[in-house]
Simulated assay, not measured.
Amino acid sequence: MSDPSPPPITLYSTEVCPYCVAAKNFLKSKSLSWNEVRVDTNPAAREKMVALTRRTSVPQIFIGDVHVGGYDDMMALHRAGKLEPLLQGEGA
């Protein structure tokens, strides 16, 4: 059985958001790549983010189809040992 490919990471962000920078630095420290969606320059992307998450704050982070939440949510998952399985495509 081959390993599943890791799910894509999507990060909804703005240019001047300190939590967005922190989230990107954390992902970078784990040698992960992500698809960044800027909601400050793209109103349609902001509408999509709010529709998907029911939140207006950034960052909003998705791993595959799983909405992780913001930076603090991602760090809480990481501390609980639940982020790694998600990153490896093992589901929530």
Rank of each mutant, 00 (worst) to 15 (best):
L32R: 13
K28Y: 12
A44G: 12
G70I: 03
T14I: 09
S13E: 09
K28M: 10
S29N: 07
Y71V: 00
R54V: 08
S33M: 10
T56V: 14
F26H: 14
S33Y: 09
G69Q: 00
A44Y: 08
A51T: 11
V68D: 01
S33H: 10
H67A: 08
A22F: 09
V66K: 13
V66W: 08
M49G: 00
D72Q: 06
E47D: 13
K28S: 13
E36Y: 07
E47I: 09
V68T: 00
V21T: 15
G70A: 05
T53Y: 10
T41D: 10
S57M: 02
E15C: 09
V58F: 06
K30F: 09
D72H: 12
S33R: 11
F26R: 11
E36V: 05
S33L: 11
G64T: 04
V50A: 06
G69L: 00
N42M: 02
V50E: 15
F62Q: 00
D72R: 05
V39D: 04
N42G: 07
L27G: 00
P18H: 01
K30N: 05
R55N: 12
M49D: 02
S57F: 14
R55Q: 15
R54C: 10
I61P: 01
E36I: 06
P18F: 05
V16W: 15
Y71F: 15
E36T: 03
D40L: 02
R46E: 11
S31W: 10
A23I: 03
K48A: 12
A23C: 11
M49L: 03
V21H: 13
L52Y: 02
A44S: 13
R55H: 09
G69P: 00
I61F: 03
I63Q: 00
D65H: 09
V50R: 04
S33C: 10
K28P: 06
R55Y: 10
R38P: 02
E15F: 13
P59I: 05
T41F: 01
A45M: 10
P18I: 04
R54H: 14
H67P: 05
R55K: 15
K48R: 14
V39Y: 03
G64L: 04
E47W: 08
I63F: 02
K28D: 09
F62S: 03
F26C: 04
H67W: 07
D40N: 06
N35W: 00
Y19E: 01
D72A: 05
V21A: 14
Y19S: 04
T56E: 15
C17S: 11
T14R: 08
L32S: 06
S57L: 09
A45W: 02
V66I: 12
S57Y: 11
T41A: 14
G64D: 03
G64I: 01
V39L: 05
S29C: 07
